[in-house]
Design a protein around this nucleic acid. Sequence first.
DNA 1: CCTCTTTTCTAACGGCGTTAGATTCCATCT
DNA 2: AGATGGAATCTAACGCCGTTAGAAAAGAGG
Lengths: 189, 189
Amino acid sequence: MSPAARLDTDAILRATFEVLDQEGNAGLSMRTLAARLQVKAASLYYHVPNKAALLRLVADRVAGQVIMTLAPGQGWRELLDGMAHALRGTLRTHPGAAAVVAVQDTSPEVFEPAVPLVLSSMRVGLSVTDEEALHLVQSLYVLVTGLALAEFGNAPAPPTAPAAYYDTWFDIAVSTFLAGVEARYSSAD
Amino acid sequence: MSPAARLDTDAILRATFEVLDQEGNAGLSMRTLAARLQVKAASLYYHVPNKAALLRLVADRVAGQVIMTLAPGQGWRELLDGMAHALRGTLRTHPGAAAVVAVQDTSPEVFEPAVPLVLSSMRVGLSVTDEEALHLVQSLYVLVTGLALAEFGNAPAPPTAPAAYYDTWFDIAVSTFLAGVEARYSSAD
DNA sequence: CCTCTTTTCTAACGGCGTTAGATTCCATCT
DNA sequence: AGATGGAATCTAACGCCGTTAGAAAAGAGG
């Protein structure tokens, strides 16, 4: 966008999202990405080891954005519901990223800072082990990612069904999962 | 395997699963696939329009295999639990196919024959609309596919965590979802 | 102005999906 | 048996991909 700004990893990552948003995952190549930065493809390799690493940065940034929305002191339901909506919102903003997030798994170091927050939220009103709590969060993350992939998988082509279809699908899926958390794990304090 | 059998769509599909099982999704190209059939890549295009169509056949066959296990007259819980286990079992047998199934969506005509069976099962003991019932089934399908992708996504490389980790993750995810179905939709008859 | 490091470029490699057009196979008919 | 014609496969190539080696340029410090 700027005529010839200097290149760095973050500029590349930002341009990656631009390409993803406008051309979709299928339209993302090291060459198209370089062209958008007014640079040749080989130059990218000075800042990024390879394309797979770049895609992991994409997945990490999405996860990071979701984690940012998590506030301490929330109840487990707010936490999980908020996470589901934040993830879907982020993937709706970046439809092409859904296919990336679904395939790449997020780096542990991105997820890790959120762990204590998640655990402290879920220990209130829920009788779960730490392992169970984390499995529940990851399950919901996988579920929402899968829904987003079904909706945005062919981005930038519009979804095949009307938006309302995916809205109710999302609502049903998430609220059912949360109802299951409550039914199975709510503590009888 | 046989020295020079004649080529047809089904032989190609079977060879595709072989490559997927042994080399993983990353090792599947039209050229490697053709080589396994002792044929040149271009010959495949006489029987299959393109690679995407072939991958959809893979997703369809996985879905078909899952559907085959569904018996009429089951309760909704047996049905959903059986589907989840059948899907995971199929993807465990064909680890490389997980990445394919996650990205391709199954053709409607494959899913369609199972719809009446699903609806008749879920109308017993559950007060759901048809739309809700189908959303629930699809949600579970997406959830299990996502779990399998996390487990087998790098096939044929072994999963990064021990098998028990994914077993308990799967159990927690599926039983929580089913508990949610019961909590939210069980009819009080 | 020269030197050294950082950054970008040119050029190429091998592999990919796909296509056009020539070629071979094989069943059928005379 | 030989000719015919469609079905099936092959050869060769196109343009794209991710990636790399090594040359060129840009910029900082003496």
